[in-house]
């Protein structure tokens, strides 16, 4: 009996060790890469550059929050669990709606609401397909992504539609306490989502629903409603981001849908920065800033930007292989 006990104990130790190793490894890799950039990439550490990277990452980060919330509420088994492939296309559509309404002379607050509403409506469509029609999330969100990007193209007729307003230029150029408006948006939004996910009863329940739906159901939680929420919230993030995109470019442009892959990469990479290897807001923030710094560092070093997506892909594979290794070492 003693042997059994000590064996389970040592296997837990080994597993905890492996987990710590992976997580520390992730932080160490992050640190080493940043340090390398700081030493070799001229201007990397200048406050101008740092702020620039943060601003560039705002859009990616908030979209990745949407994806993260979907992962939290529906589990990280992307094949059978949940995923929101529509989030980026959705942002593109919301942006097109926003710009078009502004140009039609709608008052700004109404146009903002309409953009966010558009995002949430597409999110609702995702939820409907997954919860009511029981479509595989991968497929459901794929179809919605097609619809969203098609609608975006239709509204914009494949053109860049310019727009300018005081509100948008404040968002673009405004500063407060030496920090740009976009950075403030990121800070406030992060605090908001982090509270919702990590410091509210709601978040605990959403994690439970995503972590083990049967257990959540047995605890009396409404699983379907939580899944709806995940997708609608992801749509909200998309709508919200679309306003930032428009303000940054003073226009609605095509190609927002291309953000999907970096968004996925950030949300998946983020899991490695959490103690439980689950999606977290903090992890996603670190991961998407990391993705941003990586691109920036390469640029400053004069490395071709063509490397960026390959490095992201390799990182995803590395992270997933390592986490599955860390989980597997729990020893049969």
């Amino acid at each position: 009996m003693d042997t059994t006990v000590s064996d389970t104990k040592s296997s837990i130790d080994r597993r905890a060790l492996a987990a710590v190793f992976v997580r520390l490894g992730a932080f160490a890799a992050l640190g080493i890469i940043l340090l390398y950039f700081a030493i070799y990439a001229r201007g990397f550490t200048s406050s101008f550059n740092l702020q620039n990277v943060v601003e560039q990452s705002v859009i990616l980060t908030i979209l990745a929050y949407g994806m993260t919330v979907v992962f939290i509420g529906t589990g990280t088994d992307v094949q059978k669990g949940g995923i929101d492939l529509a989030v980026a296309a959705n942002a593109g559509l919301s942006g097109a709606v926003f710009v078009t309404l502004l140009n039609l002379g709608w008052p700004e607050p109404l146009a903002v609401l309409a953009a966010i509403f558009t995002g949430m409506a597409m999110g609702f469509l995702n939820g409907l397909a997954v919860v009511v029609f029981r479509m595989i999330p991968l497929l459901a969100t794929l179809a919605v992504m097609n619809i969203a990007s098609g609608l975006e193209l239709t509204i914009t007729e494949n053109n860049v539609i310019g727009v300018s307003s005081e509100f948008l230029s404040t968002l673009q150029f405004g500063r407060f306490l030496g920090i740009s408006a976009l950075a403030w948006v990121l800070i406030v939004f992060t605090i908001f989502v982090a509270f919702l996910m990590h410091y509210s009863p709601f978040g605990v329940r959403l994690y439970a629903v995503g972590g083990f739906p049967e257990a959540a159901r047995a605890a009396g939680l409404n699983v379907g409603r939580n899944i709806y929420f995940s997708y609608i919230f992801s749509g909200f993030c998309a709508g919200f981001t679309s306003i930032l995109i428009v303000s940054r470019l003073s226009a609605s442009t095509l190609g927002t849908g291309l953000l999907l892959l970096p968004v996925l990469a950030a949300a998946l990479l983020g899991t490695v920065f959490s103690r439980r290897f689950v999606p977290t807001i903090g992890g996603t923030l670190i991961a998407s800033l990391f993705v941003g710094f990586l691109a920036n560092g390469f640029q400053l070093l004069g490395v071709s930007s063509y490397w960026v997506s390959g490095v992201q892909g390799a990182l995803i594979l590395l992270v997933v292989a390592l986490t599955s290794f860390a989980k597997k070492s729990e020893g049969a």
Partner: peptide, 20 residues
């Protein structure tokens, strides 16, 4: 060999492929 599930494995390859 690395026991990555198909979705993520092929997603990674998609990224790497575009870089290549």
């Amino acid at each position: 060999k690395l026991r990555i599930d198909a979705f993520l494995a092929t997603l990674g390859v998609l990224f790497i492929g575009s870089s290549v």
